[in-house]
Design a protein around this nucleic acid. Structure first.
Lengths: 205, 205
DNA sequence: AACGTAACTGAACAGGCGTGCAGTTGCCAA
DNA sequence: TTGGCAACTGCACGCCTGTTCAGTTACGTT
């Protein structure tokens, strides 16, 4: 055999990325061989090099796609920059939780395999990460200026909030005790508490 | 050469663990070879097997030591079970932040390399992790019963708080903008906010 | 129907992997 | 001072690694 019947380059390209994502998430980048990826795709190892110049680039492309898609998805939410910081924080938290719950593997890889990027690729991804962090930091800073949030240290609160929100991907399992929408609601509440503006959202109390 | 002059089994045993911790933290378990560890210790690869039966056990021992030491260190804080939940939460947060800031490598490995444990070792470590999580969950639940904390979902708040607190190890660098004690204070404040008991600690505002 | 090219195989390369073990050396107790 | 053991070397084993490439087959176009 050589070329498979019904084969198409684009289909295989996608299959390679998906197989790599699944395997990297389960075993880690360094622990997965090109032969394992190839076998998951149903192809010989050599064929992978039609789609990536090397293993390192395969990882980089996965992280880059993930971050760019994340940023584009937030942009597509079309949350107006003139909306109140409270509304924007609520929207952001719902978006972040939903996005992270839906793509556990890519999220996992994206902060687990950063150290396996070579320095150049690492700093390219860092730029995108920073850009994403700026979204929430901007909301908090503006909310503080408006007086609707009470924050001691915006940078530290940003880091704490991102850690708290992203943490959902370490324990969430499909079909668990809470539905995604309930989880999102709880995180909205907790984000408001952290921001010192515990009103809105849940109202009452 | 064979035996080195001035050599002692116990010294080498410690050196092996420390070299492994440093290398695992920097490159990941799977990406580090026994030969690299040996070379960092100043020894040939074969000599490592005087101190560990295999690479897997070396990782397990590191995680186990870390978790046991963490639990023992908390116990040594001697925080009375009769103290108020507020006081206990404050003590716990200060302890957790200080501990995690002082041992970044071991902390990093302990949640990064869990998936590289074989199933038996994994569940042994999970028991210890659960035990640690119970400490904070217990404080929150009791505080809720006492009426000094206002919490919707204790389990979820626990996970959020642990993620927030442990997140410090992803960005903290020695000599950074904030001193450890300041960071701890901020995290105490934020923990109280999350727990819905924003009084105490910082007082005023 | 013939041809070019896209898709893929299968073997090969040099090097690294975890681990085992016979042999060598330094240290300490008798 | 001699024996025994603890500490370690150096090489070997079989296997796996990422990557390359000449050869083979299916598909799309002319």
């Amino acid at each position: 055999m050589a070329r498979k019947s019904g084969s198409s380059g684009e289909k295989t390209r996608v299959a390679v990325q998906e197989a790599a994502v699944t395997l990297f998430a389960k075993h880690g980048f360094a622990a997965v061989s090109m032969r394992q990826i190839a076998s998951a795709v149903g192809v010989q190892a050599g064929a992978l090099y039609l789609y990536t110049p090397d293993k390192q680039t395969l990882l980089y492309e996965i992280l880059k796609n993930h971050m760019e898609h994340l940023l584009a998805a937030w942009a597509a939410e079309n949350v107006s920059a003139e909306a109140s910081p409270e509304l924007r924080l609520e929207q952001f938290v719902r978006f972040h939780i939903a996005y992270h719950i839906e793509r556990p593997e890519r999220v996992f890889i994206s902060y687990m395999e950063l150290r396996n990027l070579d320095p150049d690729n690492f700093s390219r991804i860092e730029v995108l990460r920073r850009e994403y962090e700026q979204i929430i930091e901007g909301i908090l800073v503006e909310g503080q200026a408006h007086g609707c949030f009470v924050i001691d240290d915006a940078r530290l609160t940003t880091m704490a909030m991102i850690a708290m929100l992203t943490g959902v991907s370490t324990w969430y399992r499909e079909g668990g005790r809470l539905a995604p929408a309930d989880i999102a609601q709880h995180y909205v509440d907790m984000a408001f508490r952290l921001g010192g503006g515990a009103r809105l959202a849940h109202a009452a109390e």
